[in-house]
Every structure is written in structure tokens, then in C-alpha cells.
């Protein structure tokens, strides 16, 4: 497809590639609105926050001091570090659980379900997006609470005699709800990868002497790796910044780093807030660089 490089691009008017700067700018104008949004609503606020992260606060006044104190304090404070680590562990566990459930689902869907029913089931996965995130998380309060549906069910079945309080306002609740919220992202990413896979290859691998498990590992997994990476990116990264779910179902025990940042903000500690935000951002960028190096992010980008 690159044979045309340098030559006229078919389908474009001749002036469009005449090479003059004006013509090139003329072609770029559709990017304008998006670029403006990105600049004013993302890069500039980000720059402001970045600057804040080196300032200090005295008597609720921001003072431009240019210090690394805010960053140092984050790493020297036990609670902050613990919350950050807990957030990472939570993100890892939810990603693992989400993919662990989404893979069998997507595999079954892509391999054994007729195209018609595939659409129906995918729709069922997407439908939750049509309702508000907030409403869905509130619904989980009603399910996981002391007088919630889950306890009622367990008591009806006779597994417990007293309602349990272990599901809500702690890390368990956060884990359950986050897994629920991010399952569709994992399922859709994996499905889009699996759907393109030719399953006769697994038959061929077995025909050539591979056990079903080995066929899966040697033939299927390498080819759906982009789907896994997409799933990981779509689940892991947003969870690092999760705020709403821990607020609503985490209580005081289920706090994640996002809640910490909000607390800084509410307490007027803008520099601490800014520093914590940039520590998270740096961590995520580091992860993406690693992904890019070892897991071919290019594939992911083209798959998206």
C-alpha cells in the first residue's frame, strides 16, 4: 500500500498536495476544534497543575517557591505510599479478575455463538453504558449492604444466619464493583481480537500433535495479545485514577489514591494534590513506555 508514496494521492484534488505551506495548513483546519479542546481543556490545565506541584501553601495562599518538597513529602509519608501501593494492587487484581472473566466469555462468544446471538450478547454487555455510572454504583450499595440483596440471598440459601458486613465500605466492595464496572472494557477488547481469529488453527495445531492447552498457548495467545494489552490498558489505567467507586462503596477503609487527591484539594493543599497527580501520571507513562517496548503498543493502537 505504500507504493504510492511520493506520487499523487488518489482521490485528493491536485492542489491538496502541491506542497505549498498554505495548502498544507488548509488541509489541517479540521483538526482545529479538537486541537483547541485539547489545548485549553487539557494541556493548559495540566501545565497549571504541574506548576502548582512545585509551589507551597501558606495560610491558604499559594506561594511560588519552586521546591521539590511536595514530591518528597509524598514519598516520605507512610499513608500516601501505602494508599498508592494499595491502588496499584487493586488495579492489578481488578485487571486480572476482569480479564479472567472476560476471556472465557469472549472466547465462547467468538467461537461457538452464531453471529446473530453474538450481537445480542455484546449488546447486553454494552447496555450498562447507557445508564449513569453513579446509578450503577449506587445499585451496588443496595446489593452489597447489610440489608442488601446479596445477604438476603445467602440467608435464604442458608449459608449464613446473620447478615455479613464484609461486602460494603471496604476493599472487598471496591474490588467487586470495579470488576463489574470494567468487565465490559475487557470483554470488548478481547472479543474484537478473538473475533478475527481463525479457530481452525487450533484444530490444525491439535492435528499436528499439540494438546488443546498447548495449542491455545502457542497459537491462540500470541495472536490475541493485542486484545489483552488493550484490555489491560483500558482497565488498569482508569482504576489508578478511580474516585467515585471507592467513595461510594469503599467507605473509610476502601480509600484509593484518587480519594487522597480529592482530600488534598478539599483541604486547599493544591501543591500536594498536584504532586500526587503527577506521580500517578508519571507512573502511568512509565507503564505505557514499558508496554510499548515489550508488548507492541503499535498493534494496540491500530486495533483501536
Amino acid at each position: 500500500m505504500t507504493a504510492q508514496a511520493g506520487g499523487p494521492v488518489p482521490g485528493l484534488p491536485a492542489e491538496a498536495h502541491a506542497g505549498s505551506r498554505g495548502a498544507a495548513l488548509g488541509r489541517l483546519w479540521p483538526f482545529g476544534p479538537a486541537a483547541a479542546v485539547l489545548l485549553f481543556l487539557f494541556f493548559i490545565p495540566l501545565a497549571i497543575v504541574f506548576v502548582y506541584s512545585f509551589w507551597t501553601v501558606q495560610n491558604l495562599q499559594l506561594i511560588p517557591t519552586w521546591t521539590l518538597q511536595n514530591y518528597l513529602k509524598f514519598f516520605q509519608t507512610d499513608t500516601y505510599i501505602r494508599t498508592f501501593l494499595k491502588t496499584i494492587i487493586m488495579a492489578v487484581l481488578v485487571t486480572a479478575a476482569g480479564i479472567g472473566m472476560a476471556f472465557p466469555f469472549a472466547y465462547f462468544l467468538a467461537r461457538y455463538v452464531s453471529t446473530r446471538w453474538q450481537r445480542v450478547l455484546l449488546l447486553a454487555v454494552i447496555i450498562p453504558f447507557w445508564s449513569s455510572y453513579l446509578v450503577r454504583v449506587y445499585a451496588w450499595q443496595a446489593i452489597l449492604g447489610e440489608k442488601g440483596a446479596l445477604n438476603w440471598l445467602l440467608m435464604q440459601v442458608g449459608l449464613i444466619s446473620e447478615p455479613l458486613t464484609i461486602f460494603l465500605y471496604n476493599d472487598v466492595g471496591v474490588f467487586i464493583v470495579l470488576t463489574y464496572v470494567y468487565f465490559p472494557f475487557a470483554a470488548l477488547s478481547l472479543y474484537s481480537s478473538l473475533e478475527k481469529f481463525d479457530f481452525t488453527q487450533l484444530t490444525a495445531a491439535q492435528d499436528l500433535g499439540a494438546t488443546p492447552l498447548r495449542a491455545m498457548r502457542r497459537i491462540l495467545l500470541p495472536q490475541v495479545r493485542p486484545g489483552f494489552i488493550t484490555a489491560m490498558i483500558f482497565v488498569f489505567i482508569p482504576i489508578i485514577g478511580e474516585y467515585l467507586t471507592p467513595t461510594l462503596v469503599g467507605g473509610t477503609k476502601g480509600v484509593l489514591i484518587g480519594n487522597l487527591i480529592v482530600n488534598f484539594y478539599r483541604g486547599g493543599a493544591f501543591p500536594a494534590m498536584a504532586a500526587a497527580s503527577f506521580i500517578i501520571a508519571a507512573f502511568i507513562i512509565l507503564l505505557l513506555v514499558l508496554f510499548r517496548r515489550y508488548l507492541q503498543l503499535d498493534d494496540v493502537v491500530t486495533k483501536l
Binding site: Q201, A204, I219
Partner: peptide, 19 residues
């Protein structure tokens, strides 16, 4: 099972491993 049989198959769509 297939992986223990001393027969091999050329599939209609070849089913080559693209990777």
C-alpha cells in the same frame, strides 16, 4: 484424541499459523 493420531490434515483454508 487428534493430537495422538498418526494422521495429519491439510485443511481447506490451510489454517497456517500467521504469526
Amino acid at each position: 484424541p487428534p493430537h495422538k493420531r498418526n494422521v495429519n490434515t491439510v485443511f481447506q483454508n490451510y489454517a497456517l499459523f500467521p504469526h
